[in-house]
Simulated scan of single mutants.
Amino acid sequence: MASTGKKKKIDREFIIAAYMNYVLEHDGYPKTVYKFCKDIKVSEEDFYKFFGSLDGLDKNIWSTFFTTTANAMHKNEQFEHFSSRDKMLTLFYTLFEMLTLNRSYVLFALKRYDMPLKNMTQLKGLRSHIKEFAGELIETDNDEKTSRLVKNPVAVFSEGAWLQFLFLLNFWMSDESPSFEKTDVAIEKSVNTIFDLFDNTPLNNVLDFGKFLWKEKIMSN
């Protein structure tokens, strides 16, 4: 007799979701691809269609956070007409909403090893995505400037955007405010500050941001 059950679709999204659930439910990571596939009832062949290793899967999860965020942003028909500042704000707001939806996994993954730098290796793909996004924004702004003297260095801006994300990520991890409202404030202030720096606006904005960070640091200790 033929089965009437609906066959589950094995794709990247299915494996990623199963992996994240596995990590949280087992309070740890699978030792081998074989063990992981056996537990989620898929073949190793299916796994290797999408990922070359468990480490590769770890990194791909963070890249997927970004691509899902980017897809959500571009569904807004007005997004392409946003200023570079608003595009960066939208990226960070949406990305941290994505991280919040997966907060349990994110916090667990970022505390996997005792050495913080080792935990950062899984963010390699995400780093490339954020730097590329920021670089494209500054290149667009530079194209609108007639003098080379007022054009901003793409490499500096893109690396700054990545360091900015790392700061915000650390802030968000320790944020205990309702709906992570303080993280939203930090995003707004940090993005406005970095754009103000490139636009040579008064130092008051930078000082204001510094006071905010100092206050939040004191309050969290």
Rank of each mutant, 00 (worst) to 15 (best):
S43K: 08
S43A: 11
D46I: 03
D46A: 12
D46Q: 15
D46Y: 12
Y48M: 06
Y48C: 03
Y48R: 10
F50H: 14
F50C: 00
F50K: 00
F51G: 01
F51I: 00
G52C: 05
G52F: 06
S53M: 08
S53V: 08
S53I: 07
S53Q: 04
S53L: 08
L54E: 05
D55Q: 13
D55C: 03
G56V: 07
L57Q: 01
L57R: 03
D58F: 01
D58A: 07
D58V: 02
K59D: 13
K59E: 14
K59Y: 04
K59L: 04
K59A: 11
N60H: 11
N60K: 13
I61P: 00
W62I: 01
W62N: 11
S63N: 11
T64Y: 10
T64L: 09
T64N: 11
F65V: 02
F65K: 02
F65S: 02
F66C: 03
F66Y: 15
F66W: 12
T67V: 12
T68N: 15
T68E: 14
T68K: 14
T69V: 09
T69Y: 09
T69F: 06
A70L: 12
A70M: 12
A70D: 15
N71A: 13
N71P: 00
A72H: 13
A72T: 14
A72C: 05
H74R: 14
H74W: 13
N76W: 06
N76G: 06
N76D: 15
E77W: 03
E77L: 10
E77D: 10
Q78I: 02
Q78E: 10
E80P: 00
E80V: 14
E80S: 13
E80N: 14
H81G: 01
H81W: 05
F82Q: 08
F82P: 00
F82M: 05
S83N: 06
S83G: 07
S83I: 06
S84R: 09
S84W: 07
D86L: 09
D86Q: 14
K87G: 02
K87H: 07
M88R: 04
M88F: 08
L89A: 08
T90K: 03
T90E: 07
T90S: 15
L91Y: 09
L91C: 10
L91D: 04
L91S: 06
L91P: 04
F92L: 15
F92Q: 01
Y93R: 11
Y93M: 10
Y93V: 06
T94R: 12
L95V: 08
L95S: 07
L95T: 08
E97G: 10
E97P: 01
M98W: 04
M98D: 01
L99M: 14
L99V: 11
T100K: 09
T100G: 05
L101F: 07
L101I: 08
L101N: 13
N102A: 03
R103V: 05
S104T: 10
S104N: 10
Y105F: 15
Y105W: 11
L107T: 08
L107W: 03
L107F: 06
L110N: 14
L110K: 10
L110M: 15
K111C: 04
K111P: 00
R112W: 01
